[in-house]
């Protein structure tokens, strides 16, 4: 795998010849597993009750909540039916109770995970998500929260290097 073809390296603006090349090569396995995790979260073989188009929309929304327009743009390239609305941070799900619960939970856990309580899980169950969908949604939010910080860190490192 070419480390400069990974989403985190591209979003951080790193290209071949970057002064960070040597240290990134030492952690190439981690970059590869990060890329695999992106596929598992965004384009799983078995998406269950969380469609790929919904995942792309939520991922874009999370990137926007983290003030990362470059990563948000990457997720826009994966949009399908309905993604655009979900990615709009002014949209709360409207009349769709299931979507509303998903968006509310995504914003909460992205911005302020410490405030999440047992009742937030109960709300998702009440809105029709099953246990597996709740884990799928949690992994998606949690993965993008990781990815966006790796990118932020790499950008700062590139500025200093």
């Amino acid at each position: 795998m070419d480390i400069f073809e990974t989403i985190v390296a591209k979003a951080a603006g790193l290209t071949a010849g970057s002064p960070l090349t040597a240290v990134l090569n030492l952690r190439s396995e981690i970059l590869e597993l990060t890329e695999n995790s992106h596929e598992a979260s965004l384009r799983p073989n078995q998406p269950g009750g969380l469609k790929r188009s919904e995942r792309a929309g939520l991922a874009c929304r999370i990137a926007k909540r983290n003030n990362d327009p470059v990563l948000a743009k990457h997720y826009e390239s994966m949009f399908g039916v309905g993604s655009q609305a979900i990615a709009d941070t002014g949209f709360d799900g409207g009349d769709d109770a299931r979507l509303k619960a998903i968006i509310r939970h995504t914003d909460l856990v992205t911005l302020n995970p410490k405030e999440a309580t047992a009742s937030d899980i109960t709300e998702l169950l009440s809105a029709g998500l099953d246990d597996a969908d709740i884990v799928r949604l949690s992994e998606l939010i949690a993965f993008i929260s990781y990815q966006v910080r790796v990118i932020a860190g790499l950008r700062l490192m590139a500025e200093v290097a």
């Binding site: 597993l33 695999n36 995790s37 598992a40 979260s41 799983p44 073989n45 078995q46 269950g48 246990d131 597996a132 709740i134 884990v135 799928r136 992994e139 993965f143």
Partner: peptide, 9 residues
């Protein structure tokens, strides 16, 4: 419950 992500994680 989400084995695809766990396997990578």
């Amino acid at each position: 419950l989400d084995p695809e992500t766990l396997k990578q994680r």
